[in-house]
Amino acid sequence: MAQAHADADKYYIPHSSPWPIYGSITLFTLMSGAIATLDGWLPAYALIPGFVMLALLFVFWFHTVIAENQAGIYNMAVDRSFRMGMMWFIFSEVMFFAAFFGALFYARNFSVPWLAGDGVKIFSKLLLWNNYDGVWPTNGPGVVGGKADGTFEIVPALGLPALNTAILLTSSVTVTIAHHALLTGHRGRLKIFLALTFLLGFTFVGFQAFEYHEAYTELGLRLGTGIYGSTFFMLTGFHGMHVTVGAIMLTVIWFRVMKGHFTPKRHFGFEAVAWYWHFVDVVWLGLFTFVYWL
């Protein structure tokens, strides 16, 4: 272990690091695998190297950073940089979701009504899509996807999605309690509530998987079910991926807590994950409102 110590007015600049270039190669491998798979050059196992490298990347890189942190190399300024970095990263994620929410709004307020002859696009209906009524949810005037007869059902908001909302909201509370416990030095409470949080997270993902299964097998609701299926699965899917990642990060943080990491004053890792978790939560509220409910 490195023995250097935090020097309050020295901003730590790592001298050199192999992880960034390794990370770039990882990304390249991952992308190449995806390309080879999508283009049918190779079977899907072409993705494996990339994912393995990616997992190792996180292990190595975070290990280095955690070790440096534990060794006390980082002063408060470094800590602040990490926090700001995390905040802006989350903001960029928000914008990524915004693109898909934008697609949903556009489809509901513009393209679907237009296809049904609304406003200036009256001829779209008259000439091209004579029988289209443009009622949401829809798989479009061409009746794309769905069951054999082209119909499909949607997941009612008040079933699993409502339960999942409750789960995520609860997990948001538990992570806040855990944070509080960390600040006030109640390590026992911290461990329990943090564990609860990621358990709730994984439960959410489980329910979501169940819901997807239902949708695919029973409801005729698939990724290819017109614009409804597209927006539904892309939004909930990306969200689900983020929940999964978040829950894994919470688990990692929990192990760190068990190892005695973090102090009431210095716990960037914990906070970053907690922020991320809140972000995932807020996105879900948007999803619940605009995808399932309204």
Partner: peptide
Amino acid sequence: VMPVLAGAVTMLLTDHFFGTSFFNAAGGGD
């Protein structure tokens, strides 16, 4: 804006490979 571009090209990708209808009028997209 870079994440929005990422979103846009992701939709292209799924329209191309996974049958989504973001940009396909028949499915209700545009």
